[in-house]
Amino acid sequence: MRLTVEDVSFGYDASRKVLQGMTFTYESPDVMCLLGSNGVGKSTLLKCIMGELTPTSGTILIDGRPVRSYSPREMAHRVAYIAQTHTPSFSYKVIDVVTMGRTSRIGYLANPSDSDVQFAYEQLEYLGIERLAERPYTDISGGERQLVMIASALAQQPEALLLDEPTAHLDFGNQFKFVRLVERLRERGMGVLMTTHFPDHALLLGCTTAILTNGGVGAQGPAGQVVTEESLRTIYDIEINIRDIERRRVCIPGSMTDPLGREDRSSGAGKFETGSTRRP
């Protein structure tokens, strides 16, 4: 699957543009990270790609066809989208939720067969959470729920997963496990396009990375080239140091000597600005 985003802009009303002039390409089964500050429109961009929102200008193509021309079923065979949070209302069993991923693979009015349930269960096994199969989806933790949604997405057999800040609600350990899961998905041949707040993850995965700014895509390329001290400083508006420790490259926010700004108050420490208030 080849995704082309060309000069896409979006605004809920004319005066306030959430997205402006986004241009990048993605091709499965690559892994790609989208970095950008709060409010720069990462989630909005994914919603535009999924056809949930219609861009005010620009085009989004999948395999050369505008996304709006895809039926939901055709779309489900290309990409599976997982939103940041999902608030469940009914206590479906985990296995039932994962089996719902099969919906686009069965007839319009058909019920999933035993082999669909088996395939769903295999996705739970793949993620190592098959012990949750008979548990109510409402009773499991947020991290587990995230994995269940990924299992549903895999049951859908798309060409790529579209993940909106998949690590946002995970604890420290689960965040790291998630990065390793992305690596396994890559080995399996499953494309991943995700937004993230962690440049470390992009460096760790060494994947294609695009930097989103208020004025468009700042840069796109291998993480090692795109994720630099300067580019991160532009995104996040703080000093960021990138260091190589043994065989790892890590991002350290703040000054190496005075991270909390105790000695130098002039740097604006403790004040917040977000993408939507900051003008390019």
Binding site: E52, V79, Y81, I82, P88, M100, T103, S104, Q156
Partner: peptide, 21 residues
């Protein structure tokens, strides 16, 4: 529609991603 109703009752965004109109 009984299976479709299951998918619809999980959430609009999820149902759409699962390929439901």
């Amino acid at each position: 529609y009984r299976w479709r109703l299951n998918v619809l009752s999980v959430g609009d965004v999820e149902a759409r991603s699962f390929g439901v109109n």
